[in-house]
């Protein structure tokens, strides 16, 4: 997982990550807003992230996000088209979180471990 340098955490559990991606946790522990970035639903990296990391099916997240977006109940993650766009969005957005399979550790973003 990659986060904006403003996010002061070192690791996340799978259940915390699921809460963040199902928009059931919308603030970090210091009360700053969480901004979630995702790739298109059919993007292979999005499919792998849902199934292997979050252990949910992409269509389940879609149902939750569509409901939030089109009923006024809340805000869904921001969809970006490419991995590069995702990295750039997380770089310039305070409180942002995203996923990439490979990231240059010398880049400006913080890399967060997932506690199993």
């Amino acid at each position: 997982m990659i986060v904006n340098p403003t996010v002061q955490i070192n690791d996340l559990s799978i259940s915390q990550l699921r809460r963040i991606y199902t928009m059931r946790q919308v603030r970090w522990s210091n009360n700053s807003p969480i901004k979630v970035f995702v790739l298109p639903n059919q993007h292979p990296q999005h499919q792998r992230f849902c199934k292997e990391t979050l252990r949910v099916f992409p269509y389940q997240l879609d149902r939750i996000w569509h409901k939030l977006t089109f009923s006024g109940l809340g805000v869904a993650p921001v969809r970006v088209k490419t991995i590069n766009e995702l990295i750039k969005s997380v770089e310039k957005t305070p409180g942002a979180i995203g996923y990439v399979e490979t990231y240059n550790m010398e880049g400006p973003l913080r890399v967060i471990k997932i506690k199993q």
Binding site: R19, Q25, V26, R27, N31, H66, F70, S71, L73
Partner: peptide
Amino acid sequence: NSIDWQANIYFGRFKNNHWLYSSTRDVPFA
């Protein structure tokens, strides 16, 4: 808002969020 709790109040015109598909009944793909 906390890690475990969220409470929101909505004022104005809101959608019915009580049945399985009520809040997205007009949204064809949802």
